[in-house]
Design a protein around this nucleic acid. Structure first.
Length: 418
DNA sequence: TCTGGGGTCCTAGGACCC
DNA sequence: TCTGGGGTCCTAGGACCC
């Protein structure tokens, strides 16, 4: 059967989440910032119109923000994650075949639907809006890449009004022609530059390019993009995401750190987050890489990483922290002001398939029960258990100076109706 | 003064084996 | 003395995504 995708994408998702609980924000310029209130990572249409670009450091647009009374929020990931799952649940009532592609996007398989696809898209849009308060746009096409393009135009074209079906559309060539090459899914900065130098500026030009030339210059990835633009699907719907191959936790400090003790607190605390993720996904890690770095923007720079292999795969927080602290000792250099650190867990294996070792003296049943107990407690309380190695006052912790309430996940932050 | 975080896939090149 | 070539596996780095 022919494939058919609807890409449902939440409009300015983080901003829209803030607006659901704060209606005063409607029609006003709003931005959401990254950790430590560093960069702009979401903008309302009004903020985009003011020329605030994606990813720009907040201090560089301070003037625009002040002059136009732009409302500024720190990231509130607890809120966004919860709103995301509400949106995804709503979508899964439309089709059992849905791929959650990111926090704010999902591909829905609508092959075999006989009704008007535009009407169907509009129905999705209305329902998500009504059930969650989040506005979405819907792009429909035979391939994921084309659905992306349809969605992008749906968002901005007044005529499309948030829903665009590009299957059998007389408008297809025009849509491709007005899509700049760098907006095509899979074409990044580098590839766009190379393509432009070859005179290819639009999605339409890329679709009609000689495929063997593309294959030679841009590899299989480039060729797939071209086929997708031609309506030949190369990327199937992935309903059951494959198991993770790596898990990382990295953060920029709220304040620079120069002592090894504080660096260790931070590493321990990120390891505890990473280990929890491992256990949630029933995985264990064989390899851990810890890294530390000073600011990238100073003269006296230092960054380094240290990789450790474990004799037996583990997801035990205590063991991982113990090993992580050894890594940190190896990485620390006196005299540097560290700005960032983190870790990646690699060579992940399913919990049930851990290879034992002859020389392993750890009581893994016992430590496993401890982890279960900790996870069980933390799932039920809003103030989770911490490990002593994480430190008590954590003066380096990430700053969220303008975070809104976690309306949907904390009893003490519920919205109040006056 | 202030510049995010978490992932995946592909490819080239080296190590190693027969 | 002459010193091949093909295959596999692994890794680092690049590019991309949201």
């Amino acid at each position: 059967m022919k494939e058919l995708f609807a890409l449902v994408d939440c409009n300015n998702f983080y901003v829209s989440c803030e607006r659901v609980f704060n209606p005063e924000l409607a029609h006003r310029p709003v931005v959401v910032l990254s950790n430590n209130d560093g960069c702009v990572i979401a903008r309302s249409n009004e903020a985009k119109a003011l020329g605030i670009s994606m990813g720009v450091p907040a201090f560089k647009v301070k003037n625009i923000i002040d002059r136009n009374a732009v409302k500024v929020f720190s990231s509130n990931y607890a809120l966004y994650a919860d709103m995301s799952s509400r949106v995804m649940e709503t979508l899964s009532t439309f089709s059992p075949e849905i791929e959650i592609y990111s926090i704010d996007e999902a591909f829905v398989d609508i092959a075999g639907f006989n009704c008007s696809l535009t009407d169907y898209g509009r129905n999705i849009q209305r329902t998500v809006r009504q059930w969650t308060g989040i506005p979405v746009s819907v792009g429909i096409a035979q391939t994921k890449t084309l659905a992306k393009i349809a969605n992008r135009i749906a968002k901005t074209s007044a005529k499309a009004d948030s829903v665009l079906d590009l299957t059998h559309s007389p408008y297809l060539n025009k849509a491709l022609d007005k899509t700049p090459i760098e907006k095509v899914w899979g074409v990044g900065l580098k590839t766009a530059l190379k393509l432009k130098r070859a005179g290819i500026e639009t999605a339409l030009a890329l679709r009609d390019v000689d495929i063997s030339w593309i294959r030679q210059k841009f590899g299989v990835v480039g060729a797939r993009t071209v086929y997708e633009l031609r309506g030949v699907s190369c990327y199937a719907l992935e309903q059951n995401p494959p198991a993770k191959k790596s898990i990382s936790v990295t953060r920029t400090f709220g304040r620079e750190v120069d002592s090894v003790e504080q660096l260790k607190e931070a590493i321990a605390s990120y390891i505890s987050i990473a280990a929890e993720k491992l256990r949630q996904q029933h995985l264990a890690a064989c390899v851990m890489t810890v890294f530390v770095a000073t600011s990238r923007f100073i003269k006296n720079r230092y960054s380094n990483f240290y990789t450790m292999e474990f004799p037996v795969a583990t997801n035990d927080t205590v063991e991982l922290i113990r090993r992580g602290l050894v890594c940190t000792d190896n990485l620390y250099r006196k005299g540097y002001r560290f700005k960032k650190c983190g870790l990646t867990l690699n060579s992940l294996v399913p919990e049930g398939q851990i290879q034992g070792s002859l020389f392993d003296s750890t009581d893994r049943d016992k430590s496993g029960r401890l982890m279960q107990a900790v996870d069980a407690v933390n799932a039920r309380v809003s103030c989770p258990l911490h490990w002593a190695a994480e430190g008590l006052n954590q003066s380096w912790a990430v700053k969220f100076n303008r975070r809104s309430h976690r309306y949907t996940t904390r009893w003490d932050e519920l919205p109040v109706v006056a």
